[in-house]
Amino acid sequence: MKSWETFTKRIRINKPIEEVYNCWATKSQIEKWFLEKADFIFENRVRKPHELIQKNDDFQWKWNNWDFTEEGQVLEANGKDILSFTFGSGGIVAVTLKEVQYGTEVELIQKDIPTDDSSKMDIFVGCITGWTFWLTNLKAYLEHGITLHAKGLSQDETKDLVNS
C-alpha cells in the first residue's frame, strides 16, 4: 500500500561530498541552484554567504519566479553529510549524503506530509515532482556549471513551465 506521508528521491553527483554539502548548507550556493534568495538567521543575525548553516537556524527562502517567502527552521546540520529542515505545510525534508564511487549520492526524504486529498496532490505529487527537477538541477550545476531553471519570470509566465 502506498503511503502519502513520505517519499524518497536519490541522485548521484560526480563531485566530492563537501562540495555537495556546501550547496545545501550555504546561502551563496543554495541561491545558485535552488532559491532566488535564502537567509539563515541565528541569534538575530543573518549568516554570511559562505558560512555553514547550523542546527536551530531560522530561515527565510524566496522561491524563484514566485512571490512567496517560506519561513522555517534547520533541524539538523552536521557540517558534513546530514541536514534537515521544516518545509512549510509539507512536513520535514531530510538530506543525507554518502560517498560512493565517482562522487556523492544524495538521498532526500520528505516526511510528515498531511494526507488529506488536497495535500496528496499539492504537496506529495507537487513536491515529488519538484524535488526530481531540483535534484537534477543540482547535478547540472555541480557537474556542468549550468542551471536548468528559468529565472526572472512572473508567475504567469511560468505556468506549465517544467523548469520553473
Rank of each mutant, 00 (worst) to 15 (best):
W66V: 14
Y102I: 00
S89A: 10
G91L: 04
S84H: 03
I109P: 07
G90V: 00
E76G: 08
G90P: 04
D116Y: 14
T69R: 12
K62V: 09
S118N: 13
T96A: 13
F85Q: 08
F85R: 03
K111F: 07
A77F: 06
T115L: 01
A94W: 01
T86I: 05
N65R: 01
D81V: 00
T96S: 14
G72D: 04
L83I: 09
Q110S: 01
S119M: 04
W63T: 07
Q73Y: 02
Q73V: 09
T115Q: 12
D116P: 15
N65Q: 03
E71I: 14
G103D: 08
K62F: 00
G90S: 15
G91E: 01
W66Y: 13
I82R: 05
W61K: 00
M121G: 03
N64E: 11
G79I: 11
L97K: 05
E107A: 07
E76F: 00
T69E: 10
E105P: 09
T86F: 04
E105G: 09
G90E: 00
E70R: 06
N78M: 07
V93A: 11
S89T: 10
E76D: 15
N65V: 08
D117L: 14
A77K: 02
E105H: 03
D117K: 15
T69V: 15
K62I: 03
Q73P: 03
N65A: 10
I109R: 10
I123C: 02
E107H: 00
G79M: 12
K62S: 10
W61R: 01
Q110R: 02
T115W: 04
D112A: 04
V100I: 14
D117Y: 13
E99K: 03
V95M: 08
E71F: 13
F68Y: 15
G91P: 07
T86V: 05
I113Y: 05
V106P: 09
W66A: 12
N78Q: 05
E70I: 08
A77Q: 07
W66R: 13
D122W: 00
I113T: 02
L75N: 10
T115I: 10
T86A: 01
E105C: 07
Y102L: 11
W66T: 15
Y102S: 11
S119R: 06
Q60N: 03
N64F: 11
A94Y: 06
L97F: 13
E71G: 09
D116Q: 12
F85T: 04
S84Y: 04
I113C: 03
N78R: 02
E99N: 12
F68I: 14
M121H: 06
Q110N: 06
L97T: 10
V106Q: 09
D112L: 07
A94F: 04
N65L: 10
K62H: 02
D116K: 15
P114A: 02
N78C: 07
T69W: 01
E105F: 07
D116H: 15
V74G: 05
F85D: 00
V100R: 01
K62L: 12
N64I: 08
S119K: 08
W63N: 04
D116V: 12
